[in-house]
Design a protein around this nucleic acid. Structure first.
Length: 492
RNA sequence: GCGGGUGUAGCUCAGUGGUAGAGCGUCACGUUGCCAACGUGAAUGUCGUGGGUUCGAAUCUCAUCACCCGCUCCA
């Protein structure tokens, strides 16, 4: 299997073959930002399409959505991000280890730090923080901490060209809230009934304290999220359902079983709104061969919809404070909140409730990287190394390459005709330069599953050579049957 | 943000004060009739960026940017 043992090898591969480049490279690069090159753009698009097909197209109970990145600030007040999506961190002066202050344990009780949510940055920063009795988890030094530093995890931007009349907005830190904000719209316009899901793929932005490992953790990233709404009491079954569905999706697209696993979150690791959460992890070859999260499947309960009902009740305060979020607090829930504007009426049981939500949330960039790394292989062929990307046909950036065996005797004419005939149906590539063996190997490196070669025999019996990427085996197929052959083999 | 490391051709790297190099890749022409390894020729460098020292800097020095390994966090 792959001989990519270091992240550097992957970065190099990605650049050399045109999958991923550093953003703004000609200006020295921009931290944490990356661009997808010609092959990478195709690969990533295929990953998105495969997700959409599995999650939306093939299901009768899920519909799609595509929200704006900028949303009303109250969305983030209600979701909790505006107040809580920040960390207060301090550094141990002895060993330079950085720790969130809410994770520090007291010297006296010695208890391990408990998991807590992100903090409210305004109130926390204003508080006096007595760290003199706190223990550094790394070097055990007591009270050697510097001033707490605040990290805001959402990007801010301004709406309105007039400088005197601008509103501060946030770039969304997750696509999920756009789905909750449109829950009512979808209910009213599509005839869906609980249980059903709303799916969305799009960019999100988090001003991470530290980025990591190539495109694994970036400040701008793409999510594929599904919010699946179900009746309270059925949520645990749906949680299991989606756990399996999502795991199998990676396997079906060729991820090797031994590189994929679940990791359940400990109860004290769960976010305050989550009843259960499991990560789908991939064994990336970063340094020590660490397992890293590709996707999280969470039971978010009815938390988000209930929060947005509170948000809707708070709008008067928002207008009165002239949009200053720091001056308002969310209104309490109505006593009959379960009959609120974001509730669902179950015709069969004649009851109204706020649906529970199961959320599979996948990282598109992470998955793309995993598919790339997992497909990479090197093998010995006649004493030389053949490197090949064994992509699942659905993910392969190029489905078929068309070659004339040599650049004469009318072969290029037949080959270009075949190419023109196929490119409307499949992503194809035409190449007539150099030795054919070299062209085969070049396509191996791009992960192209099939090469079609026009030779002398083509003019005699109308057949072409079909060469398979994985086995390197060749067979002859009538040129008129190529389209059907590819369609069947590629399952398109 | 802190500590450690790195930055020279598209990629991998050599080059420790005196005219910028190799392998692979790329391109052209020829050859070639099914698996990168033929022949001939060619292109390609703000030596990450900006200051300083020096007669002279890829090389010494300072700053800065980016990446990698940790700390932290999460899709």
């Amino acid at each position: 299997m792959a001989k990519l043992t270091k992240l550097d090898d992957i970065v190099s591969l990605c650049k050399r073959r045109g999958f991923i480049y550093q953003s703004s490279e000609i200006y020295g690069g921009l931290a944490s930002c990356y661009d997808y090159g010609p092959l990478g753009a195709e690969l990533k698009r295929n990953v998105r399409d495969a997700w959409w097909k599995a999650v939306v197209q093939m299901r009768d109970d899920i519909v799609g959505l595509d929200c704006s990145i900028l949303m009303h600030p109250m969305v983030w007040k209600a979701s909790g991000h505006a107040d809580k999506f920040a960390d207060l961190v301090t550094v141990c002066k002895k060993c330079n280890t950085r720790t969130r202050i809410d994770h520090l344990a007291d010297k006296s009780d010695g208890d391990a730090a408990e998991h807590t949510e992100h903090v409210n940055i305004e109130t926390e920063a204003a508080k006096e923080h007595d760290l003199s009795n706190k223990v550094c988890p790394a070097c055990q030094a007591v009270g050697k901490f510097g001033e707490p530093m605040a990290f805001k995890l959402m990007f801010e931007t301004q709406m309105g060209a007039n400088a005197d009349d601008q509103m501060t907005l946030w770039l969304r830190p997750e696509t999920a809230q756009g789905i909750f904000a449109n829950f009512r719209n979808v209910l009213d316009s599509t005839r869906v009934k609980v249980p059903f899901g709303i799916a969305q793929i799009g960019k999100s932005f988090r001003n991470e304290v530290t980025t990591k490992a190539f495109i694994f953790r970036t400040r701008e990233f793409e999510q594929a999220e599904l919010e699946f709404f179900c009746a309270p009491g059925t949520d645990e079954d749906w949680y299991e359902h989606w756990k399996q569905q999502r795991f199998n999706w990676y396997l079906d697209l060729g991820i090797q079983k031994e590189n994929l696993r679940f990791r359940d979150h400990d109860p004290d690791e769960l976010a305050h709104y989550a009843k259960a959460c499991v990560d789908v992890e991939y064994k990336f070859p970063f340094g020590s061969g660490d397992w890293q999260e590709l996707e999280g499947v969470a039971n978010r309960t009815d938390y988000d919809l209930r929060q947005h009902q509170r948000g809707m009740r708070t709008m008067n305060d928002w207008f009165e404070s002239k949009g200053d979020l720091s001056k308002i607090t969310l209104k309490e829930e109505a006593e009959d909140y379960h009959k609120g504007p974001l509730s669902f009426f179950d015709e069969q049981n004649k009851e109204r409730f706020i649906p529970y939500v199961i959320e599979p949330s996948a990282g598109v960039d992470r998955s793309t990287l995993a598919f790339l790394v997992d497909a990479y292989d090197e093998e010995e062929v006649k004493g030389a190394t053949r490197s090949v990307l064994r992509f699942h046909p659905h993910l392969a950036p190029i489905k078929a390459a068309i070659f004339p065996l040599v650049k004469k005797d009318g072969m290029p004419e037949i080959a270009t005709k075949l190419y023109d005939d196929l490119k409307g149906n499949f992503a194809c590539f035409y190449d007539q330069k150099g030795a054919v063996g070299r062209r085969y190997r070049r396509q191996d490196e791009a992960g192209t599953p099939y090469c079609l070669t026009i030779d002398g025999q083509t003019k005699e019996d109308n057949t072409v050579t079909v060469r398979e990427r994985d086995s390197m085996e060749q067979s002859r197929i009538n040129i008129d049957q190529i389209k059907a052959y590819l369609r069947e083999k590629l399952d398109l």
